[in-house]
């Protein structure tokens, strides 16, 4: 089953993303990290297939983290979660081939990204 890494400094936000994900794909596994550092450690030790990243976090922000993840995992579906819809943030997400998910997150706002990710993962299967 695909494993989704949820990165957000807010525990509440991680719970909300986890719940939305459970509603859409109850069988997918979930991992959580509270910052970019923790996320990179998890990516080194666990098999992660999809990443959902908060934008505004202490330390490295979600966009910078998306760039780092993209270098290591060229095909991983990545979403940037934020209410910050400034052109530069959207362009930054586009530049690292990350999708945009609007906060506050619920199953509806996450659906498009997760459906796309599921298709991508299926295509990647041997």
């Amino acid at each position: 089953m695909p494993t989704v890494l949820i990165v957000d400094d807010s525990k509440l936000a991680r719970i909300v993303v986890g719940k939305a994900l459970a509603a859409l794909r109850p069988d997918w596994l979930r991992l959580e990290a509270g910052n970019a550092q923790e996320a990179l450690e998890l990516l080194g030790s666990e098999a992660v297939h999809v990443a959902i990243l908060d934008y505004n976090m202490p330390g490295q922000n979600g966009l910078a983290l998306a760039g780092t993840i993209r270098e290591r995992f060229p095909a991983m579906p990545i979403a940037l979660a934020t209410a910050n819809v400034q052109d530069e943030v959207i362009a930054g997400a586009r530049a690292v081939d990350a999708s945009f998910v609007y906060k506050p997150i619920n199953a509806d706002s996450l659906r498009g990204f997760i459906s796309g990710a599921a298709l991508k993962l299926r295509d990647a299967e041997p």
């Binding site: 807010s10 509440l12 936000a13 209410a83 819809v85 400034q86 906060k103």
Partner: peptide
């Protein structure tokens, strides 16, 4: 505390946009 920070974060992010 987490919820309040997140509320403010969402509010300010929209305002910044």
């Amino acid at each position: 505390h987490d919820a309040l920070t997140e509320l403010v974060n969402i509010g300010v992010s929209r305002a910044a946009s």
